[in-house]
Design a protein around this nucleic acid. Structure first.
Lengths: 168, 168
DNA sequence: ATAAACATTCAGAAAGTTTTGAAAATTCAG
DNA sequence: CTGAATTTTCAAAACTTTCTGAATGTTTAT
């Protein structure tokens, strides 16, 4: 397979893949494009490569920057801005984990704590089932949070040498 | 807070939460409702509780069954079907992990293997960056897959006693 | 100060997804 | 069988998200 075709296929599949994770197609495609590009690209490069409009490119690049997955790069002697993506997939995964924890897990745990002290007779099976379910989810979420905290702080070496050993 | 309100809030938040994971709102709400219900509910119960149409309820209940998160229950002497959800959140998480691995991770790894043997001069930085990126992602994905396989097979006790110890 | 280059915004259009509800199919008791 | 109860399907409608591109804002070179 030729590079150009492989690249196309990677970008397009990455886009499809990402929608299942609640990330939009264009954002994922831009990320994929930047991951396989050895040099930084300008907004116009991105527009041309992916056939998307100026506004779309701009919006999604900024969102990627927001997620900490893409950086602005200044090319000396060039007026326009260039962009580059983190290429170490481990770092990408940790960055995504960190953001999602902040945006999703933390608020959910906060809500669950509040719901846990619902008033009512704990002999009532409806009350009991509700509290049991909420408590179970909160406990599980709390553990997940602790795991994430350790993993996010740890460096790649720790991850590979200590944790992965468990999974041969 | 009253049970009815807490329940409402849980169901609605679970729905919002889930959309960020690419699952649709109604499906998540039905799941939430069934998780906090001590007894199985019929399709009409679900329709009434969530104010949704017959077709919508039917479709999403079937999808939940497909995901292995909800089961049909036969209530003796009743003609209509009742539904119940797995309430052990650990089992829910493992079931979701298993399905997503099958639906998303496995196909992605298959594609990456194919893309890895792109033809071209490995001295060319474009070719090199492409191969390096793809290889990195594939390796990471393969590790993740192994981890998931172990975790899915393991029982809850192993999980709690061995793995979580690592994370204090 | 001016204008060219570039970045950002945003209202409306397009595309995609979810929901409805009525019709069709299925099941089951009598 | 028959027909009432129940489940399933599906085309159209409602809703949501994403994208476009022209207008506006900002920066920089001269």
């Amino acid at each position: 397979m030729k590079l150009a075709d492989a690249k196309q296929q990677f970008i397009s599949s990455w886009g499809v893949f990402a929608t299942q994770w609640g990330i939009n197609r264009t954002m994922a495609q831009i990320h994929a494009l930047l991951m396989v590009s050895p040099d930084p690209l300008s907004q116009d490069d991105v527009m041309a490569e992916l056939n998307i409009s100026r506004g779309n490119a701009n919006m999604n690049i900024r969102e990627l920057i927001d997620w900490g997955l893409v950086e602005r790069v200044l090319v000396p002697g060039e007026r326009r801005e260039y962009f580059t993506a983190e290429k170490d997939i481990y770092k990408v995964a940790m960055q995504v984990a960190k953001e999602r924890k902040k945006r999703e897990l933390d608020p959910m745990l906060k809500l669950l704590s509040q719901l846990e002290d619902v008033e009512g007779d704990k002999k009532d099976k409806h009350v009991k089932q509700f509290i049991d379910t909420i408590t179970g989810i909160r406990r599980f979420g709390t553990q997940a949070e602790k795991m994430l905290d350790v993993m996010i702080k740890a460096d790649e070496n720790w991850f590979t040498s200590n944790l992965l050993k468990l999974f041969r």
